[in-house]
Amino acid sequence: MIYKIFKNSMLTIFAAAILVPSSIVILGSFKSDVEIYTKPLALPLHWNLNNFRTLIATGSVWTPFKNSVFVAVFSVLITIFLASMVAFAIARSITITGKVLFAMFSIGLAIPGQVNIIPIFTLFTKLHLNNSLYGLILVNIALTLPISVFIISAFFRDLPKELFEVASIDGANQWRVYRSIAMPLARPAVGATSIFLFVICWNDLLYPLMLINELGKKTLPLTLIDFRGEFATSYSMLFTAIMVASIPMVIMYLLFQRSFIAGLTAGAVKG
């Protein structure tokens, strides 16, 4: 009995702790600042998209949105493509090469990416890759390759070796085996890894903060940070911008919940 009461109240409190702030933000994006301060949890007086219109009219959110999509999509696609090829090479190689490759990328897992803050900044400034979305994509690829290789090669290792051998005997070359056998089989692992990477790239602040200062090149997290200063007291604008930044993730979460949880959990467990 006491256990039941304890359990249910704990579960309710934590659910409320998440749902209340989320509702404040969602409802707040339809409110004026005064309404947010006085009645943060009440339904908005007027359901209209004025805040969204203002935000789009000032142009402060649309460009960063496009930049974020561009950077995240290409970072993920390229990383998955490169990492799956490495993972395939590791899984297929019976010689020492596979082990060396694996060890090489394991080093990256052992050294946290933050060690590269200073050298990446100086290197990218030298190469004029600062203030460039391509530069950000390159950073994302380099930083997420080790973990991606790790997750995907763990998946390949569990596949029966015979699958590949039969194909090789039938005369398929490595590229063919990779494309027509390995990748289709790896779809669940690749899907989960992609979502994991997408969340990282979409949400990253540190590297954009270091590398980007041109207004037209900013990503969403950077823009949100600027908002705090620019609209110092305007929480209605801030909440609307947070909505814009979060909606793609929320939609993906609702659509691909399983892969989402699998991806973010695998990233934690294996990383």
Binding site: V86, A89, F105, G108, I111, N116, L123, L143, L145, Q174
Partner: peptide, 20 residues
């Protein structure tokens, strides 16, 4: 097959870590 990944990784992860 692993070559492109190795070059990006070496140039943008291992080399910076060493130069640090």
């Amino acid at each position: 097959m692993a070559f492109p990944a190795i070059s990006i990784y070496s140039f943008l992860y291992l080399y910076p870590a060493l130069s640090n």
